[in-house]
Design a binder for these strands. Sequence first.
DNA 1: ATGGCACTGGCACAGTGA
Length: 259
Amino acid sequence: MKIATWNVNSLTARLQHVLDWLIANPVDVLCLQELKMSDDKFPLDVLQSAGYNAAVFGQRTYNGVAILSLAPIRDIGKNIGGFADDHSRVISATIDTRSGPLRIVNGYFVNGQAPGTEKFAYKMSWLRALRDWLREELAAHPRLTLLGDFNIAPEDRDSFDPVGLAETIHHTTEEREHFKSLLQLGLVDSFRLFEQPEKSYSWWDYRMLGYQKNRGLRIDHILVSETLVPQAKGCVIDRVPRKWDKPSDHAPVILEIDP
DNA sequence: ATGGCACTGGCACAGTGA
């Protein structure tokens, strides 16, 4: 089965891209971020016509996350337990697979603007709360995947300019330590389980011909709990929709696991 | 060093993103 994540930068603006992509890539689960719409605007009927169930946690203008799944979705949770948040950034749910229940945690992590700002401080407290909550989630759901737009380039090789951008947003030691602390919970970056092309990125700036020059960052990730690692068969970034007209600035990431 | 571009709300342009 295939599980994917895609920051669509407005589902209103990108609905046709999502539908076209799902036709070409009929994944079992697609986690979306940056819906930028309230729940009542979510195009549930058209996605159901495409065969998908949906769990939605929307918000007007900013943020907003959803899980699309061919299989029924149950036990939906919203945001980080014990952490009061005005933003709609996390939706979690369980689907049943042949190997047992699979817990899906879909996150749109805080951007953080720049070190030293209030937004960066929010990012740090958000990441701390996420880690503490995930420790419990993992204990309750051993088969778990944490995926989405992390807004963290975990290593130098995940950035087109690790020297010039050293200690700037997405690259700071503090953010990378938080990423490592998620791995220390018993999660694995599935992309790095497999041989990958050099300079593999999942986001490119709209400006300055970022995509054409491959000036990108790998900030969209699919982490899997250690029990799932033997079932992981491949993880790829699909750059195709980034070349379409009026694209999202992010590309989908897809994990294949034994069902 | 700065801006580059895209999106939303709402109808001018500020806020946000990464």
